[in-house]
Simulated assay, not measured.
Amino acid sequence: METGKIVKYDETRGFGFIAPDSGGEDVFLHASILDEELKQNLRGGMRVGFEAMPGTQGTKAVAVHPLGAASQAAEVADETRSGDDDELCDVLPVAEFSQQITDVLIETAPSLTGGQILQVRKRLVAFAQSNGWVEA
């Protein structure tokens, strides 16, 4: 069982992504593998344990369960930005950049599939890394 963090989960559309702690590509998460309680409580930033397997359009989760609530609250608090003006010039971590891309894609093009979102994010992250906009 691997561990990671929910990057984005859209309850209405029934899918999201998990950023594995081990790194690499985000894992596609579909609501069909979740129990009703987890579907309603799953949020971005939540720590989860999961099992994944290769799918036709990338890696997909086949089992997911939440990890301890206390550790989740601490991690979300650690990641909260201070709001200083100097942050406008900071190089973003890849995970944060990927989450922002996902948010924009889901908001502006809700008809995209999970596989399409993964492909677009991969290309945009590579482009941003080549320009020094995100950590390599």
Rank of each mutant, 00 (worst) to 15 (best):
E51K: 12
K5Y: 07
L124H: 05
I18D: 02
R81S: 09
P66G: 10
V48K: 00
A77C: 09
R123P: 01
V27I: 10
S22E: 12
E37D: 13
A95W: 09
L34M: 08
V48W: 00
F50A: 01
A77H: 10
T102I: 11
P54C: 09
A73R: 13
W133R: 11
L118M: 12
V91C: 14
E79H: 07
V125E: 02
G58K: 06
D21M: 05
A136L: 10
T3G: 12
F127E: 12
S71M: 13
A69L: 13
V62F: 01
P66V: 06
A74L: 14
T12L: 09
R81P: 03
V94F: 00
I18P: 00
I106V: 15
E96Q: 14
G55D: 01
I117Y: 02
Q72N: 14
E79K: 10
V94D: 03
E107R: 15
H65C: 08
D10N: 15
N131W: 05
E25C: 05
D78T: 07
S32R: 08
T113S: 15
N41T: 11
K60W: 03
V94L: 00
D85G: 10
A70Y: 10
K122P: 00
V27D: 03
A128R: 04
I6Q: 00
D10R: 06
C89Q: 14
D90Q: 07
T56S: 15
F127D: 10
D85P: 09
V27H: 01
V91T: 15
L112D: 01
E135H: 09
R81N: 06
Q57T: 13
V7R: 06
F97H: 13
E11L: 12
L124E: 02
V125K: 05
Q129H: 04
V27F: 03
T3W: 07
S98G: 11
A61N: 04
T108P: 06
E37A: 15
D90A: 09
V91I: 15
S111P: 03
P66T: 10
A109C: 09
L112M: 04
A74H: 08
S82W: 07
Q119A: 04
E37T: 13
S111M: 09
I106G: 01
D10E: 12
L105G: 02
E51F: 11
A63L: 10
V104I: 13
D86I: 09
L112K: 01
D86F: 08
D35A: 08
Q129T: 07
D10M: 02
F50N: 03
A61L: 06
E79M: 12
T113W: 04
G16S: 04
F97K: 06
F17D: 00
G58F: 05
K8S: 12
M53K: 14
D86K: 09
P93R: 11
A19V: 04
R13N: 02
D78L: 11
V120W: 04
T113C: 06
A136G: 11
L105S: 01
L42G: 02
A63D: 09
T108M: 12
R123C: 03
L42A: 05
T3E: 14
